[in-house]
């Protein structure tokens, strides 16, 4: 029984890790033609070319990182504050239905609906436009995510601070933020991922001028340059995997 369990778990582990390992291997490969079983070249050539040439991979990585950090920070920060107002509002249910609205459509359809406004405001093809577009998806997510935090007990904590002589600001800084720290970190991580892997909306609002890593991956795939595509994928996948590990190690385990 134990042996069978070991085999099943090993199989599952391999199945999960294989795509990541294969991507990494592909990024170091070259001259791999059918029907060869192994690539003709295996080394650092692709990575050197990508990092030293004008492929723009470094800029794409920096753009993705910058945009995602900004979207996650803005989305989590404003979402946390607004979620409180919504949670305690008499029309809470109506506001929450509105918050779900962006998730009724795919991000591309949402972007297409809003494209006119992006064009009119001159935000189309700019990183600010991409940030705004992604924020419109991340913000409602954050608002919905924090609804669980603003419960009866949290309200009692706030009221207790007030009767102990504190101001609303002191209650927020000294009690609410420390209580919400774990959830804020998880939300930051989630909204970072929403932004990091976003393609359709970014491609539509960015009109090819804002080349995040996801846009770059699809560009290489369209060009059938799967070695570079694999490098872009590695750059796209490994940072979130690292973040996921850190999140699991330092945040999630402390929440449960």
């Amino acid at each position: 029984m134990n042996k069978l369990r070991y085999i099943v778990l090993s199989g599952l582990g391999l199945g999960i890790l294989f795509p990541f390992a294969f991507l990494a291997m592909l990024s170091f490969s070259g001259e791999w033609f059918f029907p060869e079983v192994l690539p003709g070249y295996f080394g650092l050539k692709n990575w050197k070319e990508v990092l030293t040439s004008e492929s723009g991979m470094g800029i794409s990585f920096a753009s993705s990182l910058g945009i995602s950090l900004l979207v996650a920070t803005l989305g989590t920060g404003t979402g946390f504050i607004w979620s409180k107002s919504i949670a305690y509002h008499s029309q809470k249910e109506t506001w929450l239905v509105l918050a779900y609205f962006p998730y009724m459509l795919s991000p591309v359809v949402l972007a297409a609906c809003l494209n006119f406004f992006f064009l009119k405001s001159g935000l189309s093809g700019t990183w600010q436009g991409v940030v705004l577009g992604q924020y419109l998806v991340a913000f409602p997510y954050s608002v919905i995510f924090f609804q669980a935090f603003w419960n009866h007990r949290t309200r009692q904590f706030e009221q207790l601070v007030l009767t102990l002589g504190g101001s609303s600001r002191q209650a927020f800084v000294q009690v609410i933020l420390p209580l919400a720290k774990g959830m804020i970190l998880v939300c930051f991580f989630q909204t970072f991922l929403i932004s990091w892997f976003e393609y359709g909306l970014t491609a539509l609002v960015g009109v090819g001028k804002v080349q995040t890593l996801t846009v770059k991956v699809f560009l290489y795939i369209k060009e059938a340059n799967f070695y570079y595509g694999a490098i872009a994928c590695c750059l796209l996948v490994w940072p979130p995997v690292l973040l996921l590990y850190l999140n699991k190690r330092f945040v999630y385990n402390r929440l449960v």
Binding site: R153, Q156, F157, Q159, L160, L162, T163, L164, G165, G166, S167, V175, P178, L179, K181
Partner: peptide, 20 residues
């Protein structure tokens, strides 16, 4: 007067200790 200005402390049934 705000709750802070009143200097009246309200204790709930739960102890509500700050967990951090």
């Amino acid at each position: 007067k705000t709750p802070a200005e009143r200097k009246i402390v309200y204790l709930y049934q739960e102890d509500l200790l700050f967990p951090h």
